[in-house]
Design a binder for these strands. Structure first.
Length: 557
RNA sequence: UGGCCUAUGGUGUAACUGGCAACACGUCUGAUUUUGGUUCAGAAGAGUCUAGGUUCGAGCCCUAGUAGGCCAACCA
């Protein structure tokens, strides 16, 4: 008797399974529709995982469609970065790479059809007049005096718009729906506007460009998208989306909205992220502190962990605030299983094993990952002079029974090597520890310990003559405020001044000499690190992805 | 003086669509551990926004209220 746990479905999956059951179509078709006007961020990752994930799960397809209807903001550079990011997340759109701009001709013809049906017209109101007549959410709008032109006149005017007779803003094509609708989106929305401007793909072929509302739904329809998933703000656009498809009598794609991702201590708004980049608050779109996909990738978050995160966040229709701890947990889980361990010393201090011969060198064997038997092992040279972390030594710990690390007369194990006993130390005038002295117990060699000794503390170490000097960039959250949606002042006031701390004094075991950009490690007892692209042949640079959990440190505060 | 959406432990989601609320993260114990990591065992924590109603029975349905979100770009 096997008990089958029925997997719980989110509301979109329920909808899909219902549709599939009713035989509405043979397979689902989704799409991820970014506007190429900036870099993708963690919020987009949620949408990517949703759309591509659903297609995978239900054996359908997901198109990558660039929503490039506004030549003012869009650039090819962004198209490339978006493709890189989606691929990095592990999704493949095959030959289903589309552009709204590919449909400009079709969309133009659709507009002419609407005009011919008498449900679209050319308006020539000034922007101010336009806004006045539009009304407000609580007051109905008024009809434009140009609303009831003859069809042929509209056709002629639209043709003139297209052929460049008018300047930007002088004419606009509007749908003729209902100026008194309580839904502002239905008050004769703009379908086409004039922009004398080069488009990144169509060049100067067009000087009129469709708006989002006129392009998005029909693009979905032309691609036979079955489920068009978007965020909650577009909810009020749905009636317009459906109106257009119905008027044009084309494939009725269905729009379904879900809540966008909000992350604590994180800003997830393209506009604000751009401001951080342009204002020099971060070093670029791929600054490891940025929640952009390129940023978190450089920081060391893995694609697996992002996908896992997206899955655990789930999808629903209520707006909330997801705890970053969920994201952090996802990376730790992945890296714990997959990142090889090495010794790295953040604040090195010399430890001298006084009963160890000057020239003697012993090779210790260390497995690369206790969580992965296949990860192999490496050789660690052990010598008389070692580096350990200054935070692992305390001359006079405040609560001695809870201090497991080194101190006068205390014993600890040097991991993968010997148990040592501290026999003394040297300080400078300011009281800083310069050197620590200890004696090792030859009977305690790792793996062949015959002493029966038990110690509570285990320290990482690096042989002084073999040490590789490195730079480490310690990243912390970019903002100090948990919920940045709830602030009334400038979000930049909430920046964490200590979001980046550079430590150029780090020392790492010699095995990292073969490491290359993108490699990820766990520095034992410290955290996960990734080799940054700023590394050079002479100098290796590590980004700290995330610390290890630290229950002891937490208790000490 | 509008319309639409939402409301479940601290957080994110679930509850086979009416049968006394589950999972994950987080928190706290304890065990194991040559990472104060991992793993393992366990605990605390909501009676499902409020008030009515329907029903033998409601987190799920109805009504009203409250709270939050979205909508007035020739942005998406």
């Amino acid at each position: 008797m096997e008990q089958q746990k029925t997997e719980s479905l989110n509301f979109i999956e329920q909808l899909i399974e219902q549709d599939l059951k009713e035989g509405k179509f043979s397979a689902i078709q989704t799409r991820f529709p970014p506007e190429p006007n900036g870099y993708l961020h963690i919020g987009h990752a949620k949408s990517i995982c949703l759309n591509f994930g659903l297609a995978e799960k239900y054996k359908g397809r997901c198109n990558l469609r660039f929503d490039d209807t506004n030549p003012e903001k869009e650039e090819t550079e962004y198209v490339e970065s978006i493709k890189t990011d989606v691929r990095w997340l592990g999704y493949d759109w095959g030959d289903h790479e589309f552009y709204a701009s590919d449909y400009f001709q079709d969309l133009y013809e659709m507009a002419v059809r609407l005009i011919s049906k008498g449900v679209a017209y050319v308006d020539e109101l000034s922007a101010e007049e336009f806004n006045v007549l539009k009304g407000t959410p609580t007051e109905p709008g008024k009809e434009s005096p140009y609303r009831n032109r003859a069809i042929q006149e509209n056709i002629d005017l639209f043709d003139k718009m297209k052929s460049g007779v008018y300047q930007n803003g002088e004419r606009v094509l509007r749908a003729k729906i209902d100026m008194s609708s309580p839904n502002m989106q239905l008050r004769d929305p703009i379908l086409y506007r004039i922009k004398h401007m080069e488009h990144h793909r169509t060049g100067s072929k067009w000087c009129i460009y469709p708006t989002y509302d006129f392009a998005h739904g029909q693009s979905d329809s032309m691609e036979q998208v079955t489920h068009s998933l978007c965020t909650l703000e577009f909810e009020v656009h749905r009636p317009l989306y459906e109106w257009l498809l119905a008027q044009l009598e084309i494939y009725p794609s269905k729009q379904t909205e879900f809540a966008r991702l909000n992350l604590s201590y994180t800003i997830v708004s393209k506009r604000n992220l751009r401001e951080l980049v342009e204002g020099g608050h971060v070093l670029g779109w791929d600054d490891p502190r940025m929640p952009t996909i390129s940023g978190i990738r450089r920081r060391g978050f893995t694609a697996t962990s992002i996908r896992k995160f997206a899955e655990s966040v789930g999808v629903a229709r209520r707006n909330g605030l997801t705890d970053v701890a969920l994201l952090e947990h996802a990376v730790r889980e992945d890296l714990n299983k997959n990142a090889p361990r090495i010794f790295g010393i953040m604040n090195p201090v010399k430890l001298i094993i006084t009963n160890w011969p000057e020239e003697k060198e012993e090779i210790m064997k260390a497995e690369n990952n206790p969580e992965d038997e296949n990860a192999g092992s490496r050789a660690l040279p052990f010598t008389r002079e070692l580096y350990i972390d200054s935070s692992d030594f305390m001359e006079d710990p405040p609560s001695p029974s809870k201090w497991f690390r080194l101190g006068p007369d205390r014993e600890v194990r040097l991991k993968k090597a010997y148990i040592i006993k501290c026999s003394g130390f040297k300080k400078d005038q300011e009281g800083r520890i310069l050197e620590i002295y200890a004696e090792y117990d030859p009977a305690t060699r790792s793996g062949q310990d015959t002493s029966g000794k038990k110690v509570k503390g285990t320290l990482g170490w690096v042989s002084v003559p073999h040490a590789v000097h490195a730079e480490v960039r310690l990243y912390d959250r970019l903002f100090l405020t948990e919920n940045l949606n709830k602030i009334s002042d400038d979000f930049k006031n909430h920046l964490n001044p200590n979001s980046l701390q550079t430590n150029t004094n780090v020392v790492v075991e010699p095995s990292v000499r073969t490491a290359s950009v993108g490699n990820q490690f766990q520095f034992e007892r410290i955290g996960y690190f990734r080799v940054d692209e700023d590394s050079t042949a002479e100098r290796i640079i590590f980004n700290r992805t995330i610390t290890l959990k630290d229950t002891w440190g937490k208790k000490m505060n």
